[in-house]
Amino acid sequence: MKKLSILILLFISTAIYAQKEQVLEPKLENIAWISGNWKGEAFGGLTEENWSEPSGDSMMATFKLIVNNKVTFYEIEIIREVNNTLILQIKHFNNDLKGWEAKDETVDFPLKEITANKVAFEGMVFEKINANEMNVFVDLQQENGTVETVKFNYKK
């Protein structure tokens, strides 16, 4: 009976461990699924995000929000390999390309974790639904100090 109990516990712990997604190395090749031309809706308009394939130790993207057939703002985004980890950096621009951040400043999101279907940065998470769909969750600081998470559902 004792051997049977040990076998059952071993089976259960193995099954639980197998269900937990494996954490991957912080390498661009492990998040290459983000690359592509993605379109969705958010902030009362249409969004478009275009991610390059990994090259030169980075991936880059452009983002735009269109509301009432007018561009509201743009972003340039990069994910870089730095010191054996990844960092997501963003610069924002008005529709006339006047920057929001100071010349030498970026909005930075350090890497938390990568799995086969998710890359989590502090404040932004990319989640692969399938080869042609992903969700991006962005934490936005509100004027009252609270944080609101906005979901972008993108399709290729």
Score class of each variant (00 low, 15 high):
2 K>W: 05
3 K>Q: 12
5 S>V: 06
5 S>P: 00
6 I>S: 05
9 L>R: 04
9 L>T: 09
10 L>I: 13
11 F>S: 14
11 F>E: 05
11 F>P: 01
13 S>L: 14
13 S>E: 05
13 S>N: 11
16 I>G: 03
17 Y>K: 11
19 Q>K: 07
20 K>S: 07
20 K>R: 14
21 E>Y: 01
21 E>K: 14
22 Q>G: 04
25 E>W: 00
26 P>R: 07
27 K>W: 02
27 K>N: 13
28 L>A: 04
28 L>E: 10
28 L>D: 09
29 E>M: 04
30 N>L: 01
30 N>M: 03
31 I>D: 08
35 S>T: 00
36 G>E: 08
36 G>C: 06
38 W>P: 08
39 K>V: 14
40 G>H: 06
40 G>S: 07
40 G>T: 10
42 A>I: 07
44 G>Q: 10
45 G>D: 10
47 T>P: 02
48 E>V: 02
48 E>G: 05
49 E>W: 02
52 S>I: 04
53 E>R: 05
53 E>Q: 11
53 E>V: 06
54 P>K: 02
56 G>D: 14
56 G>T: 01
57 D>N: 13
57 D>W: 03
59 M>G: 04
59 M>C: 06
60 M>D: 05
60 M>Y: 10
61 A>V: 02
61 A>C: 08
62 T>V: 09
64 K>H: 12
65 L>Q: 08
65 L>N: 08
67 V>H: 08
69 N>W: 05
69 N>R: 12
70 K>Q: 15
71 V>A: 03
71 V>Q: 02
71 V>N: 09
76 I>Q: 12
76 I>A: 11
77 E>F: 00
78 I>E: 13
78 I>D: 06
79 I>N: 07
81 E>K: 12
82 V>P: 00
84 N>L: 03
86 L>R: 10
87 I>K: 14
89 Q>G: 03
90 I>P: 01
90 I>R: 10
92 H>F: 10
92 H>P: 01
92 H>N: 08
93 F>T: 06
93 F>I: 09
93 F>R: 02
95 N>Y: 04
96 D>I: 11
97 L>H: 11
98 K>P: 00
99 G>K: 05
101 E>A: 04
102 A>M: 13
104 D>K: 13
107 V>I: 15
109 F>D: 06
110 P>L: 11
110 P>C: 11
113 E>L: 13
114 I>T: 06
115 T>D: 08
115 T>F: 02
116 A>E: 15
118 K>I: 01
119 V>W: 09
119 V>G: 07
119 V>I: 14
121 F>I: 00
122 E>M: 09
122 E>R: 12
123 G>L: 07
125 V>N: 15
127 E>F: 02
127 E>G: 00
127 E>L: 11
128 K>N: 08
129 I>N: 11
129 I>L: 14
130 N>E: 05
131 A>C: 00
131 A>P: 05
131 A>Y: 01
132 N>E: 15
133 E>T: 12
134 M>D: 08
134 M>P: 02
135 N>S: 11
135 N>Q: 14
136 V>D: 12
136 V>N: 04
137 F>V: 01
138 V>T: 08
140 L>P: 00
140 L>C: 02
140 L>T: 12
143 E>Q: 15
143 E>C: 00
144 N>H: 09
145 G>H: 09
146 T>I: 02
147 V>Y: 09
147 V>A: 03
148 E>R: 13
148 E>V: 01
153 N>F: 03
155 K>N: 12
155 K>S: 11
